[in-house]
């Protein structure tokens, strides 16, 4: 038994989409207050794992426990259990088209509280606080198709944080952002880790892993390939090359010599 409590415990979790096995026997422990980064190439199963953690998918075999209680479809048949879990765990989806499904920013942020049947006054005051805190009050009545990429991301995160969940799951929060918006989001995420909230971020951005993570889980084709301190994992070029997170470039030097060496991209493309 470790000193800190586990929020999630996964045992031999397998998940398959029809014929394709996306997760293939994952054992994982996520501790309270930790900041975890799921690193992995495209298709390695990061999004699938986040959806398992958010109880949107249930494992084909194996088990997921949240604070010791197994997450099963049956558990979610009761409104009470569902609301309790949804309030405590929030997931920000990768695509803003999916995450922002309401006609205006205000509706977007009020959606969670409305579904959890909060009181009207409580919703209004909480939504307004969140709008101010994320500096999106001026976007209040805008429809999502009239927001910039960075604004969309901020609204998406705000729409989940409005419920003040104890676990925040983020799917590629910095993908497809320009450098300025990216650093804004990174600052925002860094300010969230106050040691109380547990954060799990899926990304293939190595910098993000070092900047925000205190623990790193490396996924490779649905399995955990490595686990540990992000700084150490990011230094292991051989491992990163093997899981396709860095790749070798061929260079032609002035002398006409062609050679290759591992090459790391500072930003996602």
């Amino acid at each position: 038994m470790s000193a800190t409590a586990a929020v999630f415990e996964l045992q031999q979790v397998r998940y398959r989409y029809q014929e394709l096995t996306a997760l293939d026997g994952i054992d994982l422990r996520i501790e309270q207050g930790s900041r975890n980064v799921l690193l992995g190439a495209n298709g390695s199963g990061k999004s699938t794992l986040l959806r398992i953690l958010d109880a949107l998918y249930f494992p084909s075999s194996g088990s997921v426990r949240f604070h010791g209680r197994e997450l099963t479809p049956k558990l979610f048949e009761s409104d009470e259990n569902a609301f309790d879990f949804r309030r405590r765990v929030g997931l920000v989806f990768q695509s803003p088209d999916v995450q922002l499904f309401n006609p205006t920013v205000f509706d977007e942020i009020a959606f969670g509280p409305l579904q959890l049947r909060w009181e009207r006054e409580q919703i209004l005051s909480r939504v307004n606080t969140v709008l101010d805190r994320f500096e999106i009050a001026h976007l209040r009545d805008r429809p999502p198709h009239r927001l910039s990429g960075g604004e969309k991301k901020r609204v998406a995160i705000a729409s989940v944080l409005v419920l003040d969940p104890e676990v925040l799951l983020l799917d590629e929060p910095t993908a497809a952002l320009d450098p300025r918006s990216e650093s804004q989001i990174i600052n925002l995420l860094a300010s969230l880790g106050d040691g109380r909230r547990t954060v799990v971020i899926a990304t293939h951005d190595l910098n993000l892993a070092v900047d925000i993570g205190d623990r790193c889980v490396l996924l490779e084709r649905g399995r955990v390939a490595a686990e540990g301190d992000p700084r150490e994992i990011v230094r292991d070029t051989e491992l990163l090359g093997r899981v396709n997170l860095i790749h070798e470039h061929l260079h032609r030097h002035a002398s006409g010599l062609v050679h290759s060496h591992p090459h790391r991209h500072p930003h996602e493309h």
Partner: peptide, 22 residues
């Protein structure tokens, strides 16, 4: 897209009932 949106709605507490803020 609608399948994904459905998941995003569930994730935020959607249980099939629609509410509008009065």
């Amino acid at each position: 897209l609608s399948r994904e949106v459905h998941l995003a709605m569930l994730s935020r507490g959607y249980r099939g009932e629609a509410f509008t803020l009065e």
